[in-house]
């Protein structure tokens, strides 16, 4: 065990100050120090994409980044999207098109797609397919995920929402 370090991380707009070991993975920090369980961990070697969060607005793997590296940075997790009572258009689209089954990979996919749609608000199916290629899903065969993202892009361009 090495010395604890004080860090200050903005998560979903709230600043959190914590003392952590340098080796603590950012995924564990989000889950166990901040208490936001929506960020799931599937492989801890950066392959599956389940733990994807936005780091200063960019999708990144939280399982292969250390919490201390987030000091002074801003993190967004799935909890920053909608709530069960009021989901955002991306989440609504996933419900309408059955884009989630077990839901374990879903938060990583939603965060990846949030950034993707911001960069490319009117993607083709092929672009969406490439866009989620870095996220493994074992339940859906991806088809309904792609349809969900397509529907979300339509919903968002109508409502002007991000």
């Amino acid at each position: 065990m090495s010395d604890l370090m004080d860090i200050k991380v903005t998560v979903n707009g709230t600043v959190y100050q914590r003392s952590v070991e340098p080796r603590m993975l950012l995924s564990d920090f989000i889950r166990f120090e901040i208490g936001l369980g929506g960020t799931h961990v599937g492989c801890e070697h950066g392959v599956c994409g389940t733990c994807t969060i936005l780091f200063d607005g960019q999708p990144q793997r939280s399982c292969i980044t250390f919490a201390v590296q987030a000091d002074g940075h801003s993190i967004e997790t799935v909890e920053s999207l909608g709530t069960p009572e009021k989901m955002n258009p991306l989440q609504e689209a996933f419900q309408e098109k059955h884009g989630a089954q077990c839901g374990f990979c879903t938060p990583g996919i939603l965060m990846t797609m949030k950034a993707f749609l911001k960069e490319n608000p009117h993607p083709t199916e092929e672009e969406i397919r490439e866009g989620i290629d870095g996220n493994l899903c074992r339940c859906t065969g991806y088809q309904n995920i792609i349809e969900s993202v397509k529907l979300a892009s339509e919903k968002m361009s109508h409502s002007g929402s991000k």
């Binding site: 799935v78 069960p84 059955h98 374990f104």
Partner: peptide, 18 residues
């Protein structure tokens, strides 16, 4: 539409790690 989706899609569904 699935009853379970609002919790699953918002990261509120609790899994073993939680």
């Amino acid at each position: 539409k699935r009853n379970e989706d609002p919790r699953i899609l918002t990261g509120r569904a609790k899994y073993m790690a939680d």
